[in-house]
Write a protein that binds this DNA or RNA. Sequence first.
DNA 1: AGCCTAATAT
DNA 2: GATATTAGGC
Length: 263
Amino acid sequence: MREDESNWFSKWEDELPSPEDLMPLSQTLITPDLAIAFDIRTPNNHQQQPPPSSQPNSGEFDSPEMGAGADEPARTLKRPRLVWTPQLHKRFVDAVAHLGIKNAVPKTIMQLMSVDGLTRENVASHLQKYRLYLKRMQGLSSGSGSAGDPATDRLFASSPVPAHFLHQGRPNSDQFLPYVPVAALQQQQQQMAAVAGHHGQLQPRYGHFGSPRNGQFEHPLLNRQNQQMIHRVGAPVHPSSYADEFESANGRRVLTLFPTGDD
DNA sequence: AGCCTAATAT
DNA sequence: GATATTAGGC
């Protein structure tokens, strides 16, 4: 699709409108609030910020649709790449464990995690890798302790893999999985583990899991309901959830989200 | 519409 | 090297 752009690119580049010409449009894409919140300068500079959060809705959930029309730059702007901190990954693992492998698909995982700024794509991508990791673990589970190179998987190794993740696969007899004490306790309120150098802590949203059920169980009725009515239990509403963004060594921008501060 | 896997791009 | 994006199939 995009093959040799290098040739015509420079020509094309010459005829680009000046930043000023583009600005009026950009401004309509960025709400004043966001601009202020993220300190976005209007003139030149083509890097914009992600809208990591929805609204500071007191106790309720965000209204789903974009009907409002006034603001929704969210879809247009490109988010910084997400950094999967051990904390965030743990949330991910917990969510998968609670959903049961069967229901653990990107969308539901994302919803259960309820970390704002987190997209389905983020989860899907991570899930893909996590599954590969689990698969590799399967193979080398017997015998010696560590499977694979820790160097490659230190993130995944940072959260214990619930036992039932490991040998499941056939839809034949999946109802006699041993009780797994996936205690979600533990874990301190440490912050910023992933970023060397600076502040990297971020509050996610609120949330916690309701019932400590384990993977094997399906929720017969918690399935359809409302798309955004997944139960989020736990600490209510932090006025504003933060997502911190900064530059990494490379000049890439990264987003560090924070999993619930209370687990 | 979402999901999955594999490949590829940043 | 880690994450994102895309392609193609289901």
